[in-house]
């Protein structure tokens, strides 16, 4: 190989040292990039968690203020509903024809236990 005619031990040692150093340098650079990316994402998660926790705390506080009022309203509503039950019931009785949409899955024709037809 003419191209390598002038290559001796000093050049080979230099190439090996330089090559190994470049591998290290590139991968160390990637460590910093990945660390930065990890920091951004874990930070975002923490911020999101903090925001959710803050909202939950505020809601709790709000709930504490209005809890009694809501309970009173629900109890009143239930009381009124129960006391008025049956008051305006319709006296007209009707028989509604129930029709179901046809489906082969619910069809008795396709059932395994078919009953004999009455003639």
């Amino acid at each position: 190989m003419d191209k390598f005619a002038n290559v001796g031990w000093p050049e080979m040692l230099l190439m090996a040292a330089l090559g190994f150093s470049v591998v290290f340098a590139v991968l160390v650079l990637l460590i910093f990039v990945m660390k930065a990316m990890g920091w951004v994402f874990t930070h975002q998660k923490k911020a999101a968690k903090a925001a959710v926790a803050g909202a939950a705390a505020a809601e709790e506080e709000h709930d504490a203020i209005t809890d009694q009022e809501i309970a009173a309203a629900i109890i009143t509503a239930l009381k009124l509903y129960k006391s008025n039950l049956h008051d305006q019931e319709s006296e007209m009785l009707t028989i509604n024809r129930i029709t179901r949409a046809y489906s082969p899955w619910s069809s008795k024709i396709h059932g395994l236990t078919q009953l004999p037809e009455r003639k």
Partner: peptide, 27 residues
């Protein structure tokens, strides 16, 4: 696992020692 622990890149780099040591050995 590499994204979770980027320090692993260093170990991956160190293991390339075999390449460059053998490069000299072959010479």
């Amino acid at each position: 696992p590499l994204i979770a622990n980027p320090k692993s890149f260093l170990l991956g780099a160190a293991a390339q020692l075999g390449i460059f040591a053998t490069f000299l050995g072959a010479y």
